[in-house]
Design a protein around this nucleic acid. Structure first.
Lengths: 194, 194, 194, 194
DNA sequence: GTGTAATCGAGACGGTACGTCTCGTCTTCTG
DNA sequence: CAGAAGACGAGACGTACCGTCTCGATTACAC
């Protein structure tokens, strides 16, 4: 059934583009990662980039994800609270790197005017992290560590939302113990305890 | 004390620019609110715009803030929980308007590459809302409704962060009862209650 | 030897720009030949124009020269005096066309604030004409028609200078027989003949 | 009848404008003599300038003429040839000053797109000089120094044209002895003398 | 091996927004 | 009420980046 014809796609070019995009994005932010610069640094032509990616946002997202590929923390053998703190802490650590923070802000920014990119960000950046946390929360409920009637999605947004909020708007810091404080406060609630 | 000299700034022009910027932003998103379009619709020259605003982002933010000037909900005569739900609910209602949501996303997007605009967004959009909530929280503590040891900033980010998170990334809806659920969940905590 | 790389320059675009620039310049003078108008009429983007020409002046000069490409009169088989009159006459005829006169005035005007354009005008408009006249004068001396001690450059300026002077300042007409009168008067001198 | 009413025109302002215009023009060329700069340096408002002059060209011309007011050489007690050389020499000397040359080029340039300015240049700059030379030439004919059948206008253009030609196009120098060589060559003609 | 077909580097192109500049007009307050 | 101050509309300038296109030069696989 139809063996492929013609010159196959150059793996080398693909990798070079992703590295160039990631480098430029991390070094100079989104503005520095314009297509011509990516192509130039990758030793690749713009046409090649646009052949395999629909637009700049897609390239930059791929380059970014390649750079942070190993950042998806899978907590193992930890109790519920520790697991939550661990995973959130990993994200805080990531966001604290100004280069990565800036890159992610840039990508989120680009996604505002590109629904397809927005979808990709959700599916390839957010979803995996949320899946892990969903598992932790479900297990936590099963283990009796968490209330059985909690709203998983909302919990995640109350744990991660503050991070992204501060990242995007810069109105507050991302201190080292932020993960602990987030989990702790949500865990015990802020209502008066009698 | 130096009376003013020269022709005073045209209030009419200022208002026309803000209205044009706001209209275009709400109608067509950030992309539609380019400077020439704003100038054209306002019956004003580009030079006048650039005389009073440093760049497009600043104009658009001003236009937007003018449009939502009355959206700052001041809860009066409400108990702590109701006050929180009220104010967050107002923001949810605002964000649910796709035109306003899109506008705010656009502005946040623009702010990623313009630190001055980012600062303005913090000071003129976020800060007033946070001030109100800060007051509510402080009063709530004093009234014994809330734990005295809560982290005010963090509480606000756990209440508002999810909204902005969902607004910016679109991974979850903004249902009508979101304010209630946010407050409720944070109030009582998600830990198992014995 | 060194095959060309990349997409070759579009000859069509180049020609369209020159024609548009020439047309606009001749139809409406320098003011009408602004870059956006040239780009629009040529069906070309501004970026393409600025890729190949450093500024408006350069485009307009090229467009003009293209229009008058065939105006360089080479006198053949004429005796010295007739040859001079012929070549000068050609220029007079050109200058008498108000569209061409206006165009050339515009270009000279632009060149006052653009040394590079001034150089181009000298090299591409003046020099070729002066080369022809230099040859005529040199031959005229050799043939014994002209004084052997004449200053070639000065002769040319006394023949052509009046034309450009009247063109630029408009203080005198450019009658049909101007070439003849210029040559005649310079030939015989204005001193009293004993 | 009817003594004038209101505040009379400030002579001081008029002079300050002319001096500022002249200074700027001579210091930085036409580009530096923009209206705001003139007004600023003169301590005068733009409106005042536009009240008394129709446009920038007119101001600049006036400023320039004020600066060179005393440059109109009236040869007295000289024989025809010496008188011609004297007056042309004065102009050569003027043109050799790069600041004045640049200023005059700028004005001529501006005049290409402003017929009214062109007229003013003719009447107030060229005409007086031509009047003097006309007188010299007429006297020269009467004295028997010059051919009685010469074309006065053409003679002037063959004497002055080369100066303006070289000034405007920069294709040749303006050496010290240019006046002498111009007069000499035109006087004796370039035809072979038998 | 030779043909065929898709890929590649290079880079020109149309489109479109940006922010800057100067001109000449106007509006207000001050002396 | 003339004039300084300076805001304003108009509109051209040159720059930047996007995504598309057109070349000629490379590869691989198929025959």
């Amino acid at each position: 059934m139809g063996g492929q014809r013609g010159r196959p796609r150059s793996e080398q070019a693909r990798v070079a583009v992703l590295e160039a995009a990631g480098d430029l994005l991390l070094e100079g932010g989104l503005a520095a990662a314009h297509v011509e610069a990516i192509a130039g640094r990758a030793g690749v032509s713009k046409a090649t980039i646009y052949k395999w990616w629909p637009n700049r946002g897609a390239v930059v997202l791929d380059g970014f994800l390649e750079r942070v590929r190993h950042s998806l923390a899978i907590p193992e053998g930890l109790r519920t609270v520790a697991a939550l703190e661990f995973q959130i802490g990993e994200l805080v650590a990531l966001f604290r790197d100004p280069r990565i923070g800036s890159a992610l802000r840039g990508i989120a920014s680009e996604a505002q005017s590109d629904p397809e990119l927005a979808r990709a960000v959700r599916e390839r950046w957010l979803a995996p992290r949320r899946a892990v946390t969903t598992a932790v929360l479900t297990a936590g409920v099963a283990a009796g560590d968490l209330r059985p009637d909690l709203d998983v999605e909302l919990v995640m947004d109350q744990l991660y939302g503050p991070l992204y909020f501060r990242l995007m708007f810069g109105h507050g810091p991302l201190p080292d113990d932020l993960a602990h404080r987030l989990v702790n406060q949500l865990l015990h609630g802020i209502g008066h305890q009698d």
